[in-house]
Simulated assay, not measured.
Amino acid sequence: MSTSTPTATGAVATAPTTGTPVAAASPPSPDATAWAGWHAEREEALRPPHGWLSLVAYHWLPTEPAALPGVPGLWWADADGAHHRAGADGAVRTTAGAGVATVVVPEGGSSVAGTYLPEGREPGTDRATARGGAHDERDETREVAVEVVRRTGRYAVRLRDPLAPARLAFDGVPTFAHDPAWVVDAAVRWYDAPRSVVVGAARPGLVHHVSTVGEVDLVVERDGVSHRATLVLTGKAGGAVTLLFSDEADDVAAWRVLWVDADVAPGTDARVRLDLNRTINLPYAFSDFGTCPAPVEGNHVPFAVTAGERAPR
């Protein structure tokens, strides 16, 4: 007779029933522990009532005042911005008071114009309970936020509902297991100056203007085979550097993003660390209402990157 004990890796350690001790599973590495903490913070950042999991609708604004499905008031847009005023069904609650509220946002930008409580819905308190600040979903706002966005020269309204099915059902983002082999030091060539590039978007008919700042050589050893890809980095001098890419892995979003911990040094060659375990999904992967930019043309990794977040739906 023997007994079987599952280990942390999923393997089974077997020991005889005579009392022979079973070897303890190896503790996770410091890098894996740090990744687990980072991933927990990443998931928590998705949970706010009006966060990326709350998107439920996207409406282009007409040129003349008109009602939008399920949204109080009348809405329209022109060269002066996006406008809203009360209709027969009331108005969205804003800080503008009575009359016409106007919201102006730059291309690619967004701003919350106001909020409203759908008919028949009980309000929340939008604060922690008196029980020492403990979280309770009943204390969250239940109002819908009306976000004005400007994409490809046009204004639209996007709704953020705390009771969105994606948010209510959220129990975490699926990921590949942390693997130190997906942490690589890569050669990077920074451009002399940012280069403007037009890319597609998650929503059909839209484009984004992005700045590319350099090229990085991704070299990964997997199963004794060396895989290579040269990819373009986006960002700007003094700002965040990102790597948007698609790859050949199954069960992942059409493209994902990695924030690169590096400072742009125009006109130089250097090395950067790419921790592909921290590759994440963009907002479009969680709903049908994201307008996220697509990767620069050619930013496809011709092998499976089995690291980071998997497709959430």
Score class of each variant (00 low, 15 high):
312 P>I: 13
174 P>V: 09
57 A>Y: 01
285 A>S: 10
132 G>N: 08
287 S>L: 04
54 S>N: 05
298 G>M: 06
211 S>N: 15
20 T>C: 01
160 R>E: 13
309 E>V: 02
265 A>W: 02
115 T>G: 04
54 S>H: 05
212 T>M: 11
47 R>Q: 11
139 D>H: 04
70 G>T: 10
260 V>Y: 07
266 P>E: 01
127 R>N: 02
17 T>A: 09
73 G>H: 06
301 V>I: 12
24 A>N: 09
193 A>T: 14
177 A>G: 10
63 T>G: 08
13 A>L: 09
33 T>Q: 08
231 L>K: 09
117 L>K: 07
99 G>I: 12
16 P>D: 09
18 T>E: 02
305 V>Q: 04
52 W>F: 12
44 E>K: 15
283 P>G: 01
222 R>K: 07
53 L>V: 14
284 Y>K: 08
152 T>C: 07
198 V>E: 15
307 A>W: 00
175 T>Y: 06
126 D>N: 14
78 D>W: 06
6 P>L: 06
76 W>A: 02
291 T>S: 01
186 A>Q: 09
114 G>K: 14
243 L>E: 11
187 A>I: 10
107 E>L: 00
285 A>K: 01
161 D>K: 05
250 D>A: 10
201 A>L: 05
261 D>Y: 02
60 W>D: 14
302 P>I: 14
52 W>E: 13
26 S>F: 04
29 S>W: 09
223 D>Y: 10
268 T>E: 04
149 V>H: 12
106 P>N: 08
65 P>F: 00
112 V>S: 05
284 Y>S: 03
190 W>H: 12
102 T>N: 07
190 W>C: 05
83 H>V: 06
142 R>V: 11
34 A>G: 07
273 R>D: 08
252 V>S: 05
171 D>G: 15
104 V>E: 13
94 T>K: 02
168 L>H: 03
2 S>Y: 14
127 R>V: 04
101 A>H: 07
19 G>P: 13
259 W>D: 00
161 D>G: 11
194 P>T: 14
99 G>P: 15
245 F>H: 11
214 G>S: 13
222 R>T: 13
86 A>I: 06
79 A>F: 05
